[in-house]
Design a protein around this nucleic acid. Structure first.
Lengths: 198, 198
DNA sequence: GCGGCTATTGTGGATATCCGCAGAATCCGT
DNA sequence: ACGGATTCTGCGGATATCCACAATAGCCGC
């Protein structure tokens, strides 16, 4: 299982949460500030975040915004001791996974964290597949991409040739290159490959 | 534009909100209770809901649950005067669109409602298209459905014939019927049609 | 039993797609 | 200037798909 990142400037809380999750076999990493986590974060950092709202220095919300801006897609569970509805609403609408008030129920929190970790693992698997597709897409030339778009739009070769003002034979060549580079054998497979990503 | 349904047991608030929205050209329907709205609700009721949490009789949350159970997909904006974070979190996680505390900013609320109405309209358009596809799917015979699944999986006719233990000619016939009934001309179009719905 | 729907198969021909072989033009970097 | 990548084109043949015409057979409802 991947790691739960606990970000809280109160060492006592980090320790208590660390204890709780380690006792449930959830790997934990503790961070004493938003800044320290942000510095250590890399696009391939996996797992989920348990993030305190109020912290000295950068707040949990600000860290969340900065992570989003950097393309981080890890599930984030906010922890807060002083429930503020507008903050909760805006965090959830931005894509936070959960918003939990202290004091919380231990078992419930553990369950939510485990679900979030599973979600992250699945999401990373999906994205790994998509990255492979994106890498293959990047090897296409402009013309090949144009032809591909018309192919997955369902146009016949002769129509594509018309629309691009080139001969059918040339379309066939590009089409064949696209299939080869994208590692598919039929237009239908290509369509499915691209339908899963856009 | 479609209708905003205001559900609040306080007539003064219904009137005030009604005024606000009518002055912004948003069509409004007022309901004095969750029960009255639920009774009048039909699957094709369009628009969005502005729903008070605390009401005599059925609460806003309970109405929301019942609507979800009946397959209602209208955007719901909750209104509440006594912010409760766990309630807001659970409502949003269930799919509520927004959760607004009184007193609210008029302009902000109007903006959110207009966005929600636009969202509902788009969603209904999408679903109308999907319903058409579903209706056409329902006209397929079992065999045609089997062939269709293999076609959109990218198999060639000869392979399909093998897998189903029938002749290629029969596959061609079924395939042609599928195209006709689904109103497409190529396997790629069919794939796109089905990829948008699953 | 007759008519309609479904499923099946065949023949034969028109179209489309797939592919190897061959040739050529432009642009770019060494 | 030479090689490489990209784009373009033609020919011909092997496969595949599309389709009209034609026919057989089982099941179901009237």
């Amino acid at each position: 299982m991947t790691t739960l990142h606990i970000i809280d400037d109160d060492e006592a809380i980090r320790d208590a949460l660390g204890w709780l999750f380690q006792s449930r076999s959830v790997p934990v990493a503790g961070w004493p500030s938003a800044e320290s986590f942000l510095e250590g974060w890399r696009p391939d950092t996996a797992g989920c975040l348990l993030l305190d709202i109020r912290m000295a220095g950068m707040s949990g919300l600000e860290l969340f915004d900065r992570l989003l801006a950097r393309g981080c897609r890890m599930p984030v569970i906010f922890l807060t001791g002083h429930g503020d509805v507008p903050i909760a609403v805006s965090a959830l609408k931005k894509g936070a996974r959960d918003f939990v008030e202290k004091p919380f129920n231990d078992n419930e929190l553990v369950d939510r964290v485990i679900e979030a970790l599973a979600f992250d693992a699945e999401q990373r698997e999906r994205e790994a597949g998509q990255a492979g597709v994106a890498a293959r897409l990047a090897t296409l030339t402009q013309r090949e991409r144009q032809v591909m778009e018309l192919v997955v739009a369902g146009r016949l070769n002769k129509v594509i040739a018309d629309e691009l003002g080139i001969s059918m034979r040339t379309v066939e060549v590009h089409r064949s290159h696209v299939f080869e580079k994208m590692r598919v054998k039929t237009a239908v497979e290509l369509t499915r490959l691209l339908a899963a990503t856009p």
